[in-house]
Design a protein around this nucleic acid. Structure first.
Lengths: 206, 206
DNA sequence: ATACAATACCCCCCAAAGGGGGTTTTTATC
DNA sequence: GATAAAAACCCCCTTTGGGGGGTATTGTAT
């Protein structure tokens, strides 16, 4: 590979994008072909600016970066996506990689890491920030991972529905909901609903 | 005032600080005398770098920016603090200003706003990002504001304590706790504890 | 002076949550 | 074809929470 890497950036933090742009251009390794601050603007620009790598923030103002990642990957599978966020939660990283991202950088990363990430991803490799790498390599037991149903239920609980209401909503017996809740309390090591909701939000499980 | 403004920056997002540094230095209006990525590093540098303005992130890795703001203001009352964050929640802004900050910028602000903010704050004025200004000017009724006791209670509820446990902890009757909780449900418009905790975390009330 | 918000307290009653124990069927995965 | 995890279901019993009503005492701002 001997051409200059074409990089696009989507992030609503304008100062950050300026910093990134300077950093990338200054390095001589890559050129910034597009800087946008929302998913819709980015979507419009991708067609003709043809980047090799897209630096994507997970929290965009108009839609979830997770969903946007999936969308881009189906429309432009050749574009490598490098997620760039503040979250260092297992579940977010996992979902991002599942949705087709090639790498994941945390925003407090060293600047060298960003350049290394762009190069690695452009070369078809995967790349994780040091901190994220450690996070993902931790034994599976320390991570909380919920089944689809459990996640669905957790959302409804956090919305304040009672067992009866949840049962009606998803056409199950209230007793089943009770079992799921008991299991969620166990899994998330929560002594009651208050803690359950807190953990769910803190670990960004819902 | 005819000297160049001396600016210090604390923010753990290294890319952002680089971007900021370039932006500020490039403008010719101010000079960056210190860039640190944690409260402790910043604390050590403030003594001799003597900044006029400190750009302070609310979410520092080692302590809360809110507390750090208060600490700096008691130790170096002459330093003007300009908060720089992603949060646009009333309660956060309110607390920051109460703790002595002279201004509040959101990270997705236009770059010109940052320079304007630094100048305004250095000149002894207060400065708010456009978005924050609108937020703060909204009628008081749309904001949720809790008394100290209510906040204290809300924290304990979110930690999963029952009414009885809370009563023991803060030496009040369980009946009193019940009343407070009922009131919190009303104030935050929550139908039960699950929603109460969710709203509290989302609005960053605890 | 008085109105208001915050603080602290009390009763009744029923709905909901939580702890304990289970079973069965389906669907992956090895 | 065995194993395991996910999904769905059930009963008993106790504790906690939430809805409805209150009252009294502060301090403080108008």
């Amino acid at each position: 590979m001997n051409h200059i890497i074409r990089v696009a950036i989507v992030d609503d933090h304008k100062i950050l994008t300026e910093g990134l742009q300077g950093l990338i251009t200054g390095s001589g390794l890559a050129t910034v072909v597009s800087v946008t601050h929302s998913a819709s603007d980015c979507r419009n620009s991708l067609g003709f600016c043809k980047p090799d790598v897209l630096l994507l923030d997970v929290s965009l103002p108009d839609m979830s970066g997770l969903d946007f990642c999936k969308e881009i990957k189906t429309q432009f599978p050749e574009i490598k996506i490098l997620a760039l966020t503040t979250h260092n939660e297992y579940s977010i990283v996992k979902q991002m990689l599942d949705n087709g991202a090639s790498g994941y950088l945390i925003k407090n990363a060293m600047t060298e890491e960003i350049l290394a990430g762009i190069q690695a991803v452009a070369a078809g490799k995967t790349f994780l920030s040091h901190e994220i790498d450690i996070l993902m390599k931790r034994p599976k037991e320390t991570h909380i991972w919920l089944s689809q149903r459990e996640q669905e239920l957790l959302k409804l609980v956090a919305e304040g529905l009672t067992n009866g209401e949840i049962a009606e909503r998803i056409f199950l017996s209230p007793e089943t909901i009770k079992s799921y809740r008991k299991n969620l309390l166990l899994k998330l090591d929560a002594k009651n609903t208050a803690v359950l909701v807190r953990i769910a939000l803190e670990k960004k499980l819902i």
